[in-house]
Design a protein around this nucleic acid. Sequence first.
DNA 1: GTATAGTGTCATATATATGTAACATAACTT
DNA 2: AAGTTATGTTACATATATATGACACTATAC
Lengths: 231, 231
Amino acid sequence: MTNKNDYILVVDDERAIRDMVCMALAQELYQWEEASDAHKAESIIKQNPPQLILLDWMMPGISGIDFARKLRRMPETEHIPIIMLTAKTEEDNVIRGLESGADDYLTKPFSPRELIARIKALLRRSKQENTQDIIRVNGLMLDTGSYRVEGNGQTIELGPTEFKLLRFFMENSDRVFSREQVLNNVWGDNVYVEERTVDVHIRRLRKALEKTGLQDMVQTVRGAGYRLSNK
Amino acid sequence: MTNKNDYILVVDDERAIRDMVCMALAQELYQWEEASDAHKAESIIKQNPPQLILLDWMMPGISGIDFARKLRRMPETEHIPIIMLTAKTEEDNVIRGLESGADDYLTKPFSPRELIARIKALLRRSKQENTQDIIRVNGLMLDTGSYRVEGNGQTIELGPTEFKLLRFFMENSDRVFSREQVLNNVWGDNVYVEERTVDVHIRRLRKALEKTGLQDMVQTVRGAGYRLSNK
DNA sequence: GTATAGTGTCATATATATGTAACATAACTT
DNA sequence: AAGTTATGTTACATATATATGACACTATAC
């Protein structure tokens, strides 16, 4: 099923690379958009988020690695797969690239076949993970596409972390997660923060839910962790 | 809770790779086993199935891809996560690797950090899938995922220890356990508490079950200990 | 830049769980 | 039945877990 909104964003300052990449994409009948720098890319993403981003590592202005990191921090873009494009001499930095949030990387020069293969693999994986755009639990409604939350019809304002937290609990509702599990799933694996920090964000989430009367859905299970439930 | 049977199986014909990988695993305090080919790996898996398999793509004899496919066909191994290790020149085949049933792949050369990060992510995902299950005994229902207990449809409120206690008895229903055995299994091995403490918690458990009329399932076996039974 | 919002950590308050002792009751023994 | 032992029950001091507000610091927006 091809959605008109499904497209790949190509971000590279070199026109030659963009042309080569886009040619390959066209041949495979992918839709695409081009951006010559991070700023342009950002405004395109905000208007219409792509399904995948091909991102040059070295760019004037905001570098690819910084841009990737930024995208990973924002809930509305954090799930978009990123393939980093690196020049041969920069190979050593690949690890830093992956740590900044890229899902895969390609070393220039690369063949169109290789490019397409990686794109396919990544899209397949991300399709599996991306369940639905709108999740509902009890009176709660969370739209992962527009990054909006409603409780009993009322709009709820949430910070990025609370949003991710609520999303995680809504995707796994009625299950208890220990603070450690919450940290691993919401904050990420190799991030070190205190377990008590979870308490604080739970508190902030509850506070935000108060005006809708849904705050009791976020439940404490003593000795075990937290749970989102409609009971 | 670290289980002695939790370990990672490393399958690669090159000793250098195995050494590098195992060193990284050791540093993270993972248990592991090594196998230099698919046949050896298979016999190890049959004896004691690992929690995760690191599998080289190119091996003499049965290739990694064929072996992965085989593991996916057998019910007792189909749920074991597999990370494929591929050499750089084999990159185009990555997709075939993923299609054969691998859950993730790493391109050599890879850094220990990257290896560990992927292992952690995969183990976390697989642990979460296996954790939830529902135990039923007579009219009792205990959900380990949501930490909920019901007796004849009614919700039962339990403290952490009573929950663990009931879970233990439900997992081993109709068997008598001495107070010492109960302490070892529910409290943990190297904890010292009075044996009579068990009595008190049994009492608390019975009290919590009272409203459902199921309190008689927790039975005293004079001189021996306690038992959970439907008779 | 300055203003604003978001984050993680700590200190403190509050709530709940735990282990033990003491006494009560029931069950076997003779 | 009295004596003896095992278990039941309750109360309570203590330990532990969670809630909450304040604060310093960072990131983001304007």
